[in-house]
Design a protein around this nucleic acid. Structure first.
Lengths: 257, 257
DNA sequence: CCGTCGTCGATTGTCAACAATCGACGACGT
DNA sequence: ACGTCGTCGATTGTTGACAATCGACGACGG
């Protein structure tokens, strides 16, 4: 169906060299020909299903039926099950043997975990990058911040979620730290899930047009300690905001440990 | 002939697979009755295959053939492929469509990444736990340190690897931070892979009988800043040691980008 | 009226066969 | 002798059918 999907997801550690424009690896000059995107059903199903879940098209906590999904995707259950297994390991699906597969349910306890670990890792990322912030990095950060502001001005909430994640992701990518990128992919998925649910429930996540101005200024500045404090407060605000939203929908109490 | 129930195949290397995972976390009051261990082939294959890889029974970089593995495990390729997909997402296998599935190859670049992120996360874990270190935590840490020393004295290198990982894992478990535990599982796998390769190549990883004495003393003490410094130096030493080993076996240069 | 148990539909788990693709070997032409 | 191309074996990708298990509904007996 939907071909040519921009594969923005950096999968496991050791895939390819991201942001660095290098490609100066020894050997034959890469003649500019893009690799021809091996089309295997499994990978496309995984991408498509992940987008549907993280984008909020499938309610958190709802059950996925293999036969129905397989027919919907137009494939057999084999590749579908492998895609499901992949998403389970990514942490956005859960399965109970012989019973069912469910989209993970979001809880306030998870929010604290996600934001606390995110504060730690984002600080770590800035420490790694701090003395290597070149013009390319600064330009990229500025560009993504502009894109974020543009989507907010346009009122496109769904795009603003992706833009904000892209903005924060810039630092992780700049580190060139593949394992860190792998962890960030997991964090990003959770955040996207929370925010999408928030958006679906309230319509808006909040104004926050200038929510990243200080963040950007300090990220481009020279005071690492101030940047640490900004990350700290930024995460604290984010966690409070997300938890407030989740507390408001206490329809279903803690159903999972 | 359709009766595959009777097959009592040797479930791969070692039957101690369900050892380390279960009883650590504080679950609901287990009323004495152990859960009946849903036996699904997929999960057992995944555990068994992971143990074989991380334990060093399968050479890093070698290819896994589905048909051969399936026959060896006595199951069909379906469950096997799902287990493989799971291990791929865990980061210890790689696959090239229509070509092959390979155990990840270890490289010196990865070691720097693993130890740098591990230093950061282990510090984070101690910060989280520091003011909540009760008698149970101290006892558990002491107990695991004793176990580690015992395995070293016994000359059981394979067990000492697991004991050291268990010792360090105590802090992560004490945080009760599920996402942090998830990340630690990935780190632990990599470390186990490195150390197993080291052991297979050199026979020993080094003396280090007192390598964790200072670590334990500070972890039980009252100076968090000193603990931070100890983690820092501990990781630095570990990274240097592992990298030195990997540099020594430069038989096969970078075979992949 | 209530508790217990058997039955049934739904869903996941597993299997064996078939198709698509890749890498290498060897024949062929120049 | 060398490069090129077709063929073949090996391996993974995909499929549809069959078996095992779970949860719920309803019959039955108290």
């Amino acid at each position: 169906m939907t071909d040519r999907r921009a594969k923005t997801r950096t999968d496991g550690p050791g895939t390819e060299s991201p942001a660095t424009s290098g490609s100066a690896t020894s050997g034959p000059a890469t003649s500019g020909l893009a690799r021809v995107a091996k089309h295997t059903f499994r990978s496309r199903i995984a991408d498509s299903l992940r987008d549907a879940i993280l984008g909020g098209d499938i309610e958190p906590g709802s059950q996925l039926v293999e036969t129905a999904l397989a027919e919907q995707f137009g494939v057999s259950r084999g590749p579908l099950r492998e895609a499901i297994r992949q998403l389970i390991e990514e942490g956005i699906l859960k399965t109970v043997p012989y019973t069912g597969t469910y989209v993970i349910d979001i809880s306030v306890g998870d929010v604290d975990e996600i934001y606390s670990i995110r504060r730690n890792l984002e600080t770590f990322a800035f420490e790694q990058v701090w003395d290597r912030r070149d013009a390319a990095f600064r330009g990229e950060l500025q560009r993504r911040h502009d894109a974020l502001t543009a989507t907010i001005d346009a009122g496109d909430d769904k795009a603003s979620i992706l833009a904000e994640l892209s903005f924060h992701g810039a630092v992780y990518e700049a580190t060139g730290h593949s394992f860190l990128l792998h962890i960030w992919a997991g964090l990003r998925g959770r955040l996207q899930l929370y925010w999408a649910a928030h958006h679906r429930a309230h319509g808006l996540r909040g104004p926050r047009r200038d929510g990243h101005d200080a963040y950007l200024r300090l990220a481009l500045g020279g005071d690492l300690e101030a940047m640490r404090r900004e990350i700290d407060s930024h995460m604290r605000r984010g966690a409070e905001q997300t938890k407030a939203f989740l507390d408001g929908r206490e329809r279903r109490p803690a159903r999972r440990a």
